[in-house]
């Protein structure tokens, strides 16, 4: 999501503790940030907690945002990203084991089940990536941030971001090729 010109004005009002402006900010960014947290963590329930905490921090630390230093969307993504990293550290690198996933639900039509299986396997493959590679792919592919914005969220250079994404995509392809028989054809 791109920041709009109205974001500056909105944040100025939030900085003055205007709750109405804060509600507008929540309406504007809730889905985007929730999607980001969900893709980072692979779980909508945990994403709820992360996003709630993120918005609380936005409210409490709104004066730390300056329009000259970062776009609002970049700043918000960075808050959620940091919370997700803290969460990972607490969980000590739990990840989804693609081999352990139950992909044999026989109660749904074959085509639908196959579609669901593909989604589950791609999600699991994403979760198997190192956290920095996953973050880079999520920010650019799903969150549609520009390369500079994504690099700013991760606190790295654009060249480092490109390297992370290339390695991440290569690893994803390898993981998914192993599962190619279940992926409606071949990669």
């Amino acid at each position: 999501m791109k920041s709009t010109a109205g974001d500056d004005e909105l944040m100025q009002r939030v900085q003055q503790q205007d709750q109405q402006a804060f509600a507008t900010l929540v309406d504007h960014y809730l889905s985007t940030l929730h999607g980001f947290a969900q893709r980072m963590l692979g779980n909508p329930i945990e994403a709820d907690d992360i996003v709630q905490e993120a918005f609380l921090r936005v409210w409490q630390k709104s004066t730390q945002w300056h329009p000259q230093s970062a776009q609002l969307s970049t700043w918000l993504h960075r808050i959620v990203y940091n919370l997700c990293i803290d969460y990972y550290r607490c969980q000590k690198g739990e990840y989804v084991d693609i081999e352990a996933l139950d992909l044999s639900d026989n109660h749904q039509p074959t085509e639908y089940r196959q579609q669901e299986d593909v989604e589950i396997q791609v999600k699991a493959a994403l979760q198997q990536l190192p956290e920095t590679q996953r973050s880079a792919i999520i920010l650019c592919h799903y969150q549609e941030l520009s390369n500079r914005e994504a690099a700013a969220v991760l606190g790295i250079s654009v060249a480092a971001l490109e390297s992370l994404m290339a390695r991440g995509r290569r690893t994803l392809k390898k993981i998914l090729q192993v599962q190619a028989d279940n992926l409606l054809g071949e990669l």
Partner: peptide, 18 residues
Amino acid sequence: LLDRVTVTPPSPQLRHRI
């Protein structure tokens, strides 16, 4: 394949909670 990954939209209760 990446485009097939969907996310669950946030519930209205989450907005209320925030």
